[in-house]
Simulated scan of single mutants.
Amino acid sequence: MAVSSFFALFDDIATLLDDISVMSKVAAKKTASVLTDDLAVNAEKVVELKADRELPVVWAVCKGSLINKAILIPLALGLNYLSPVIVHGLLVIGGIYLCYEGVESLIDKLTPHDKGQADRKVKALNDAEAKAYEAKKVKGAVTTDFILSAEIVVITLNVVAQAPFAQQLITLIIIALLVTFGVYGLVAGIVRLDDLGLRMRKITSRGHFAAALRRVGGWLILMAPKLMKMLSWVGTIAMFFVGGAFIAEAMLKAPTWLLADAFKAYLHGHMVQAVVGLAAGGIAVGLAAVAHRLFRRAGA
């Protein structure tokens, strides 16, 4: 009897692991597009840092991301049990914030300024100023990560919604760990491409293979700044796609008297959702500017 009970338990565990594996694969596929945005956005956040501080900042943001997911997983499970509407409402608020950040980043990128002067200012910071600047970067990155992580958690939760609680929890933890270490591992690799290129350029061995490595190293040194600049733009644009998708999803659920079905049909397109995100971000920035002026006058 004891032996049969043991094998029955072993079979149950195997079935559980198999179900979790299947759900994890489905969730990973569902979150793939968000991971691309997450990678671009977080790579953009480590731009304009001293070279020797890039990896410590990436690691600090990675730890913040783990804390975000440790908060979000039980919160999402609890709120989803009480009312899924609350979860989606919070995602819309987060989407508006992402679009707000995107517009501010876009304004900064399109405003003429001396990039070399900005780099010199960062390099000229003393230790206390550099720490404050890093802390600001980390805080902004962790805040943005919180919203992107929330979408990943909600997408995963929708995949496992009908599964038992234990399977939901384990699948969410697996996806959270894979996403966090996968994304920030790639970010760390991207920001150190120039170092890799420099080491390859310094290879002194003779032969065609060594010469090829030195040539590739030179390409990496030239490519790294351009790649970071490209990711900076991709990260900004990604905010509108991600945030706009949250807002568009809420608009699709609006009653017909408030939003016509003919207009809703356009909201399924990704480009339209990005435009919605850009518009929402512009309105949010405008309202924030008005509120700032009003508070400043009130305090005067």
Rank of each mutant, 00 (worst) to 15 (best):
A2P: 04
V3S: 04
F7W: 14
L16M: 13
L17Q: 02
L17I: 11
S21P: 06
T36I: 15
D38S: 06
A43C: 11
K50V: 07
A51H: 13
A51K: 15
V61A: 13
S65D: 09
S65W: 01
I67H: 01
N68R: 00
A70R: 00
I71V: 15
L72K: 11
G78I: 07
N80P: 06
Y81H: 11
S83T: 01
S83Q: 09
I86A: 11
I96Y: 04
G102N: 06
S105Y: 01
I107C: 04
P112L: 06
A118H: 05
D119N: 07
K121T: 13
E129V: 04
A132P: 00
V138M: 02
A141V: 00
A141L: 03
V142N: 04
D145Q: 01
V159A: 08
Q162R: 12
F165P: 01
Q167K: 14
Q168H: 05
L169M: 12
T171N: 10
I173W: 08
I174F: 10
I175A: 08
A176W: 07
V179G: 03
G182R: 09
A188F: 08
A188N: 02
I190A: 10
R192I: 06
D194Q: 14
L196W: 13
G197E: 02
L198N: 09
I203H: 03
I203Y: 09
R206E: 14
G207A: 10
A210T: 08
A211Q: 14
A211M: 12
V216P: 01
W219C: 05
L220Y: 08
L220Q: 13
L222E: 13
A224W: 10
K226M: 11
M230S: 11
L231S: 09
L231Q: 08
V234L: 15
T236R: 04
F241G: 00
V242H: 01
G243S: 03
A248T: 06
A250N: 02
A250Q: 09
P255Q: 06
T256E: 15
A284D: 03
A284S: 07
G286Q: 06
H292C: 09
G299L: 12
